[in-house]
Measured scan of single mutants.
Amino acid sequence: IRCIGVSNRDFVEGMSGGTWVDVVLEHGGCVTVMAQDKPTVDIELVTTTVSNMAEVRSYCYEASISDMASDSRCPTQGEAYLDKQSDTQYVCKRTLVDRGWGNGCGLFGKGSLVTCAKFTCSKKMTGKSIQPENLEYRIMLSVHGSQHSGMIVNDTGYETDENRAKVEVTPNSPRAEATLGGFGSLGLDCEPRTGLDFSDLYYLTMNNKHWLVHKEWFHDIPLPWHAGADTGTPHWNNKEALVEFKDAHAKRQTVVVLGSQEGAVHTALAGALEAEMDGAKGKLFSGHLKCRLKMDKLRLKGVSYSLCTAAFTFTKVPAETLHGTVTVEVQYAGTDGPCKIPVQMAVDMQTLTPVGRLITANPVITESTENSKMMLELDPPFGDSYIVIGVGDKKITHHWHRSGSTIGKAFEATVRGAKRMAVLGDTAWDFGSVGGVFNSLGKGIHQIFGAAFKSLFGGMSWFSQILIGTLLVWLGLNTKNGSISLTCLALGGVMIFLSTAVSA
């Protein structure tokens, strides 16, 4: 259960009878995928790494000078000259100064003066180019299975845990398959586009800190620079940016070097996208990844198990997540596992009318040892309800109150669905055939309105939902006002479609 501690969480529900669903994975976010007769899966884009970055340009932001020398000439005696002028490691300046009897010249006039100092770069920052084909995306998957609280967001041991898996995709191999043991396998067909235009970005490294910066900004930095990788004795261009020549006297000129420019660069980098280094690879934390999940090989585990009949206890007080759902960790005293956990939410304890829904599909106890633990997640209705676990006299209950409203949740879900469709863009549509167009249209309606429909009408039977949709269509056909007619027709059509397409 990876997503319960992530604030940016998206719930995606598969269409009834569908074998695939489109998701948008982004750094700092987590996606929970639910479908009829399929286990619930949490998917998170953990890291995006980039390798084989080529150094484009380096800037010196802290330097020192040494070996200063000057040469001067009297008027009419030609130009002052130093051998160091031809050495690229030196920074030199030529000027004219007033000369006369007082400073060793027989004539009054302008004399030539040249001053040089050896330039040494102490600290530099480097910009590297990123090729999209060198990106690698690491995705962690977790099935809502027989897990306890100690396994949440624990990325170790996934090789031997059938509840978890790690997959890596690249532009050259965008397809992967996550093996989930008894739950089958989940196929991923990803489109490795981060949403960032790397043709316009460089990877900047300064003092063990890293950013993504725009090329134009990078090339306009007014500091000494050299092109390409460091060859040991780089040729620094624009050395004068960190060196200041003071007022010249008759035979000498003082040279000083400016202080470190790291603070000024940090100020200019305010708002830039931060990154990290992992050995020789860069780690990015921006952008998104679009994936199509193929769920035809994914299956529920323990459908044929019998119900657990022994007593359950709450190991922890049920807690609310950031998303309005409830996490419950229970301990089973029996030894008759594997068995299914009898769990439901009810409005009252007399009729036990089921409300809400299970995020953890078909929760089971897989071990036959005593005191096995299991964590599950529920989506309670707004208002008061009861969490009921167990059967008969051994069942345990917990009162729950959820604040908020169904309308607010439906609106929030619609906005999130619209954002998801905007990110998917043209990849969500198939114009290759008439059937493809209608299929894409259905998927689009489901992406945007599916979660809201589930919130508003999830407790009704599909037949009642179709009746309401048919009534809206009838009202649309018999209303003389054009805008009201079109609105009723659209709402009725969407409702009829979703009542037959969205899983219960």
Results as ranks from 00 to 15, higher is better:
residue 216 E to C: 09
residue 241 A to Y: 07
residue 325 T to F: 10
residue 124 K to L: 11
residue 495 M to A: 03
residue 363 P to S: 07
residue 140 M to N: 14
residue 485 S to H: 06
residue 47 T to F: 00
residue 32 T to P: 00
residue 282 G to D: 02
residue 484 I to A: 10
residue 377 E to V: 05
residue 283 K to P: 00
residue 451 A to W: 12
residue 86 S to E: 09
residue 433 S to F: 04
residue 310 A to T: 02
residue 502 V to D: 13
residue 310 A to H: 04
residue 412 E to F: 11
residue 114 V to K: 03
residue 32 T to K: 04
residue 35 A to N: 05
residue 414 T to Y: 10
residue 189 D to C: 07
residue 182 G to F: 12
residue 429 W to S: 01
residue 483 S to C: 15
residue 175 R to W: 11
residue 45 L to A: 03
residue 395 K to V: 10
residue 394 K to Y: 03
residue 320 E to W: 08
residue 19 T to D: 06
residue 314 F to A: 00
residue 242 L to C: 07
residue 371 N to G: 14
residue 310 A to Q: 11
residue 393 D to L: 00
residue 494 V to H: 11
residue 238 N to T: 03
residue 323 H to L: 05
residue 359 I to N: 05
residue 70 S to T: 14
residue 38 K to H: 07
residue 310 A to D: 14
residue 273 L to D: 08
residue 472 L to H: 01
residue 500 T to R: 12
residue 128 K to W: 11
residue 218 F to W: 09
residue 503 S to C: 07
residue 208 N to E: 02
residue 255 V to P: 08
residue 392 G to M: 08
residue 214 H to G: 03
residue 70 S to P: 06
residue 466 I to M: 08
residue 296 D to V: 07
residue 91 V to L: 15
residue 47 T to S: 11
residue 372 S to V: 00
residue 439 N to R: 10
residue 188 L to Y: 06
residue 220 D to V: 06
residue 216 E to L: 02
residue 81 Y to A: 11
residue 91 V to S: 03
residue 89 Q to D: 12
residue 302 G to W: 10
residue 287 G to L: 00
residue 362 N to T: 08
residue 491 L to C: 09
residue 10 D to Q: 02
residue 236 W to M: 10
residue 95 T to G: 05
residue 332 Y to M: 09
residue 213 V to D: 09
residue 452 A to F: 11
residue 245 F to K: 05
residue 288 H to I: 08
residue 252 R to A: 02
residue 180 L to A: 06
residue 244 E to D: 12
residue 150 G to H: 10
residue 144 H to P: 02
residue 210 H to G: 01
residue 131 Q to P: 00
residue 316 K to D: 02
residue 176 A to F: 10
residue 162 E to Y: 02
residue 251 K to G: 00
residue 112 S to T: 15
residue 210 H to Q: 15
residue 460 M to Q: 09
residue 350 Q to M: 12
residue 49 T to S: 15
residue 434 V to A: 11
residue 429 W to P: 05
residue 347 V to Q: 13
residue 392 G to V: 00
residue 350 Q to W: 00
residue 68 M to N: 00
residue 381 P to R: 02
residue 462 W to I: 08
residue 299 R to N: 05
residue 40 T to H: 04
residue 77 Q to T: 01
residue 245 F to W: 09
residue 258 L to Y: 09
residue 209 K to N: 08
residue 429 W to N: 09
residue 195 G to S: 15
residue 4 I to K: 06
residue 121 C to W: 09
residue 299 R to H: 11
residue 300 L to D: 05
residue 199 S to L: 07
residue 55 E to Y: 08
residue 469 G to E: 06
residue 488 C to I: 15
residue 192 P to R: 00
residue 194 T to V: 05
residue 349 M to W: 11
residue 17 G to A: 04
residue 46 V to Y: 07
residue 207 N to A: 12
residue 212 L to C: 08
residue 431 F to K: 04
residue 18 G to P: 00
residue 249 H to E: 08
residue 281 K to M: 14
residue 491 L to I: 14
residue 474 W to G: 05
residue 119 F to C: 08
residue 213 V to P: 04
residue 123 K to H: 15
residue 378 L to I: 15
residue 208 N to L: 10
residue 431 F to S: 12
residue 478 N to F: 10
residue 267 T to R: 15
residue 119 F to W: 15
residue 300 L to T: 01
residue 117 A to Q: 04
residue 141 L to Y: 06
residue 371 N to W: 03
residue 29 G to D: 01
residue 105 C to S: 05
residue 348 D to F: 00
residue 16 S to N: 05
residue 396 I to E: 01
residue 48 T to S: 14
residue 363 P to H: 00
residue 252 R to M: 05
residue 146 S to E: 01
residue 303 V to A: 14
residue 229 A to H: 02
residue 310 A to E: 08
residue 31 V to I: 12
residue 289 L to I: 15
residue 271 G to W: 08
residue 305 Y to S: 01
residue 150 G to P: 01
residue 398 H to N: 02
residue 130 I to K: 06
residue 200 D to C: 02
residue 75 P to V: 04
residue 61 Y to G: 04
residue 326 V to G: 00
residue 267 T to K: 15
residue 258 L to N: 10
residue 298 L to E: 04
residue 275 A to I: 02
residue 127 G to C: 05
residue 11 F to I: 11
residue 309 T to D: 10
residue 167 V to A: 15
residue 38 K to C: 09
residue 105 C to Y: 11
residue 342 P to I: 04
residue 245 F to R: 02
residue 132 P to S: 14
